[in-house]
Simulated assay, not measured.
Amino acid sequence: MAAHTPFPDYGRNVLQIGIAGGIGSGKSTLTSALERAGIRVIDTDVIAREIVEPGRPAWQALVDAFGLAVTDADGLIDRKFLAAVAFPTPTALRRLNAITHGAIGAEVLRALDEARDVHYAVAVPLFRPEHRTLFRLSEVWATEVEPEVAVSRLIQYRGFSEEDARNRIQSQITNSERTAIVDVVIPNNGAIDELENRIKTLLLERGIAVD
């Protein structure tokens, strides 16, 4: 795991947690627990949906890059179809990321400016080491699940085909690569109660109680 000075609060006595993890690894359960503990969560997945709404610059850029076929009957970006088009092809995925990542980062920074002097967590599924400084993070946690468990969850709970699930997982960094750049790894191959108990322990160690 990453080696750095723990809990640098950049002049503020607050927790500043990054949340990483592959698709299907339990990030939503983790962020929900943090919200119940009074920690403000800034979720880049939510922001990613907002920035591609009609009328936003990223919407037009996606249509220019991939065509009107990536929109539905209401003119909204069909995120599932776009993912099926982009994720299997490295060139298309780079094009997608180039359009969306800058806009997402700008929105996160705006939200951080509004979160001064409060505990916050930034959920960044595609976490990279530079996000630690960019998003002013004191530590980074990652949920982790075995790839086959993730495939099963995506098929069962989110309606993915097996091919789509495997393409999404293969487009991300591996568990070992992620472990090398985060501070805390939270395994989540078992029951949800096990994950929630681990989260409670981590928060209690940092002086925050969870109901």
Rank of each mutant, 00 (worst) to 15 (best):
A92C: 01
V52A: 12
E114H: 10
A98N: 07
L82G: 05
V70H: 08
R116V: 05
G102R: 04
L76E: 10
I77F: 07
A73E: 15
A65H: 06
D64L: 01
V85L: 15
A69K: 15
Q60S: 12
A103T: 00
D78E: 07
I42E: 15
D64Q: 08
I39A: 14
L62Q: 11
V70I: 14
L68W: 10
L82K: 03
T91K: 08
P54I: 03
A58H: 09
A83S: 15
R79Y: 10
G105C: 02
R95K: 15
D64F: 03
A83Q: 07
V70Y: 09
K80H: 11
V108H: 09
I42F: 08
E50P: 02
P57V: 00
G102Q: 09
A86Y: 06
E114N: 10
A37R: 09
Q60K: 09
A83D: 03
V52N: 13
R95L: 07
D113F: 00
A73G: 11
R40N: 09
A86D: 09
A86S: 14
I47M: 10
R40A: 12
A111D: 14
I99W: 03
G105T: 02
V85Y: 14
F81N: 05
D78C: 02
G105V: 00
I47P: 02
R56I: 00
A92S: 13
V108W: 10
P54M: 09
R36F: 04
G75K: 11
R116H: 12
A115F: 08
R116C: 06
V46A: 12
R49L: 07
R79S: 10
G105M: 02
I104C: 07
V46F: 14
L112F: 14
I104P: 02
V70D: 06
A65N: 02
D43F: 09
V63I: 01
A69Y: 01
F66G: 06
R40M: 06
A115N: 06
D78H: 08
G102I: 00
A115W: 08
F66W: 05
A48H: 09
A58L: 04
G55D: 12
E114L: 08
W59K: 02
F87N: 04
A92W: 01
V63K: 11
T71Q: 11
R40Q: 14
R116W: 06
L112G: 11
F66H: 04
T100E: 06
D72Y: 12
R116G: 11
V85P: 00
L109E: 15
D117E: 15
E50C: 07
A111Y: 13
R79D: 08
E35N: 15
A103N: 03
P90T: 01
I39S: 13
E114Y: 03
P54C: 11
G67A: 09
D113R: 06
V41G: 13
A69P: 00
L96C: 04
A98G: 06
R94N: 14
A37I: 00
R56G: 10
V46S: 14
D113C: 03
